[in-house]
Each structure stands twice: as structure tokens, then as C-alpha cells.
Design a protein around this nucleic acid. Structure first.
Length: 128
RNA sequence: UAAGGCGGUCGGACAGCUGCGCAACAAAAGGUAAAAUUUGCUUGUGAGGAAAGUCCGGGCUUCAUGGAAACACGACACCGGAUAACGUCCGGCCGGAGAAAUCCGAGGGAAAGCGCCACAGAAAAUUACCGCCAUGGUGUGCCGUGGUAAGGUUGAAAAGGCGAGGUAAGAGCUCACCGCCGUGGCAGAAAUGUUGCGGGCAAGGCAAGCCCUGUCGGAUGUAAGACCAAGUUAGGAAUUAUCAGAGAGUUCUCUGACGGAGCGUUUCCACUCUGUUCCAGAGGUAGGUCGCAGGAGUGAGUUGGUAACGGCUUGCCAAAGAUGAAUAGCUGUCGCGUCUAACUUUGCUUUUGCAAAGCAAUGGACGGCACAAAACCCGGCUUACAGACCGCCUAAAUUU
RNA sequence: GGAGAGUUGGUAGAGUGGUAAUACAGCGGAUUGCUAAUCCGUCAACGUGUUAAAGCGUUGCACAGGUUCGAGUCCUGUACUCUCCG
């Protein structure tokens, strides 16, 4: 298990993941991911986003907190190293049952890992 | 009693497990040392009454500066006070609502000027269509001239109102009362109230139309601004360069004059900067550090004041300080709310039971269970807000 | 965090304080053997009315107040949308 998760903070990182990566949509959240560009980082990294569309400030804050709490339970078991994840909250992230949130996050992470592996193999096959 | 009004306080509580930001402390590695870094069964601490809207007023910041005058632009506007200041607050006046407590009001000027008042109506501000009266003519239908503004019609609004006198008919033409305007007395610090005298209607509404009068205001917002600083990039050309004097000694310095520039514009004064022109520059992008938490602060007592608020004494806070933004997630118990019953009440039935009503007690179910989260800091305003509690006031209604 | 603009039929989009234009789309009709194009009419909501209409009334310019005889327009507050500042 990695010692500590690294939180994404820079706008650049978010844009790179959103444009260059793959994404999975579930009922309660959206997950984006891309391989990390930095070679030094052994651990996975993760960022959280909530748009103004889903509500006012206190709703956005709590949505992100719940995502963070769910991440702590799920990611140590499921996440791949040297990968950047971005979790985006949806309308019902704020009010849905916590168990649903956990379940959705687990399935989303598994799916996205499979997709990442595929793309990784494809790029490896391509001749430089 | 229930109802209404005003002011104030609070804004779920406790426990467990897993976590977050900041500060302190300790340890680790590191190095001359320090900073930064990592770790911690360590310790402490961590959202609001509106943190919100960004609507006002300040502090603070930079813009190369201060003062005066005029102009422009904007805000405000009964009177007096409070305040650092305000469009805020307090007290009073006037107008309106209410039975009262109490509440509401952008509440200066329309006799400085301009503008607008659609349609309708004769006329929307020096007006006359129908009327009424007098008089002349006449074809006896009516027509002309003059007077008048009481009555009619329109409209949101019609030229003081109402009554009496008066008159050809009428009219503030005259008079009483009311209103209005001017002016004096008294009360008051003033707004204003009250009262006397005079005028004789001249003066319709709109200033949240332009405007006038008075008061106030430079712009900019912590993405201000200060500092450190990867990467990248860093002197050429033309022409000899205001005037006078002095020093040094061959392009510099000082003094004075002249020209130019200096926080909306113009002018003046002082002060400062600058001295041939053009391009490129004279560094500061990514990133980081500071700004960044104790100040017009607040509890209690006392004192001045009707009050807002001020003075004095004494206590409390220097431990929120983030920046894709911490203060949480889950579970349990209690509390709260809603619903419900095998619970309660009533009716029926010999009982079992059936039906209806209810949530005061008992049991159960459901529910993040008000509005909403600091983002430089204060004083206000505005808007959102489940529920709980406290104090004072009113007396229409009901009861005793 | 800060600064600024806007909101009018289904859509676009005018509108000096005095009757909510215009275009497109839609609907109905004319034209045609049929369609397109063209031309004419209609077109905010609700109520009333009628066999069906016409007509009549009320409310409508994001929402709520205010000024005014009268607000889409002027003033104040609220909500929402968009743009700019890195």
C-alpha cells in the first residue's frame, strides 16, 4: 500500500487528464484517468472537481468530501501506480447513500484500469 | 386565555472507529549552520448570524504630489444629534395604516428656466363648443356684434371650496367660514405648531424628466501590492545633442534661465522629475515567499446622556488562516419533525374481533433534521432561514 | 475573489412613459393532377360566449415592490443567464 496519496492541485494536470485520458460515467460520479507524465512518481495521484452547476458552495464542498472519503476506502486496494485520476461529482453525489457511492467508485476504477491497460498495450505495440 | 406588536439569545447534544488543515514539540535523514523535507497510538486548535448578495462607508495598497479656483461626472436630501465614516443608528416633526401597542414613508425646490401631460375634450395652462344675458338685423328658420364663465360634455387631472349678497346674465365683484400666499407675535435648539394682521386667487400635475439649491466624493481593489526567481532573451542606427556661468579636464558635475511631464479636464502656486530622435531594452514568465490575522474588538461594573453613543475601572481573545481551497465520513444513544400501529379513545359485539378517530403516553418506520460555509480586515444595509427559549408592551375579542 | 452586460410569443429580434413592431417556424385557405415556390389570412395565456366563430373581459415583456393618471420603458430589491480579469 502506498504511504500517502498525492492530491492533484494544478489546473494544468486537470486539463491533461480531461483531454488525454479515458473516462467512465456512473450514476453518482464521473471518473477520468490518464497515465502520469512524471517518471519520478511511483504512487497514483488523484484530484477532485465539482462544477458550479451542481449547487452552491456548501453542496460542492460536501460532495468533494464524500468523494474523498470514498477514495480512501477504495483506492488503496484498486488503484494502479503511476496513474492520475480525477473524480467529478454529479447532482446526487451530495445526497445519495454512501454504500452506492462506494459501489460505483469500485466498478468505475476497475473499468477504467482495464481501459488504461488496453490503450497502454496499443501504444506499446506501435513502432516508434 | 388565545391573539397581535417590539427587542434579544440559540442555531441539535454525547460517545466510538477511520481521516483532514494549521501551529507547537519530538525524532529521522541532511548539512559548517540554517531553511526546506519526511514521520508521529504527542499536544493544542479549527466557519456564520447571515460567512451570502457585493449595495454603501472606512482602514490598507499602488498609481511620479500637495494646495487653491472653475468646469464636468456621480451620490445624497424634513430637523437635531451619534459616529472614524455612511445612503447606517438614535430622538423629534409632518403625512399615512391600525382598536391599541406599534409600524410604514427617496419627506428640499414646480412664483429660475426648459420639457411632457396619449385618447377624449371647447380648452391640458392666458382656453370658450353648447349654454346664459344684452343688442342689431331678419326671409321668424336663424344670423351678426358684445358681455360672461354659474351650468353641461371629456378626462387621472378643468383654473380655490361651500353658503349668502349682488347682477342684464355672471364672476373673490363683496362678505362669513375653510384652504392658499405674504408678514408679525408666542412656544421650541430646529423641523414645526399655534395665533394676529393683510392680500383677494395670481400659483394644475410630473424633478424615481432635464434641471436649480445645498452637502460630500481622485482612481484602484489582496488577481491591490512587496520580495525571491527556473527556462528564455539581453545594443544597434542616424544626427552631434536648448542657452548662460562655474568647476574638473574632454564628457561629466553644479547653479540659473528656457522647454516638456506630473492621480477626470483647465488655470495658478509650491515641489519633483526630465533634456536629440527611432527601434530594442533597462529584466521577471512558470513557480514560490510575504501581504495574513489584536482592534474604530468584546463581557461585567460604574458614570454622563431621553436614546444612539461616550468616559472610567476591571476581565477575555495574539491558537481558523486555507488557496482545485482543511474543519469531515460512517455507526450508535438521546433530542426534534413527519407518518403509523399489535398503542390510546369511542362505537358495535357474549368473547375472539370489526369499524372510526387520535399521536398526549407506549412501540415501530422514515428523515443531513432551517438557511447556508471564512478567502485582506472592520462598521452597516439587503436578502435567505426549520425549530426552540427569554423579556417587555397592547386590550378590539372571549372567560372570570 | 473581483468587474461588467443582459432577460420581450415556439425561435430570432425592434420598441421617445400613452394600441407589444417585424421576420422565421407552426396552423388554415388560394393556386396545382400532386408537391415545392408564390399569394392571402391567423398565431401570448385564461375566462366568458357560441353548433362553430366573431365579440367582450382580465392578466401578460424573468420575479416582487415603488414613483406616475398611466410603466416593457423610470427607481429599488431578488432570481437566473452570459462575458471579461489567471
Amino acid at each position: 500500500m502506498p504511504a500517502k496519496s498525492v492530491i492533484l492541485k494544478k489546473r494544468k494536470d486537470f486539463l491533461r487528464v480531461a483531454q488525454g485520458g479515458v473516462h467512465v460515467v456512473t450514476n453518482t460520479l464521473i471518473l477520468q484517468a490518464a497515465l502520469s507524465v512524471s517518471e519520478n512518481i511511483e504512487n497514483w495521484r488523484v484530484g477532485f472537481t465539482a462544477t458550479k452547476k451542481i449547487g452552491k458552495a456548501y453542496i460542492r464542498n460536501r460532495s468533494k468530501r464524500r468523494l474523498r472519503a470514498a477514495m480512501r476506502e477504495v483506492f488503496p486496494l484498486e488503484a494502479m501506480p503511476r496513474t492520475d485520476y480525477v473524480l467529478i461529482s454529479r447532482f446526487n453525489t451530495f445526497c445519495c447513500p454512501y454504500k452506492n457511492l462506494l459501489k460505483d467508485l469500485r466498478t468505475a476504477v476497475k473499468k477504467i484500469n482495464n481501459q488504461l491497460k488496453k490503450t497502454d498495450e496499443n501504444t506499446a505495440d506501435l513502432p516508434d
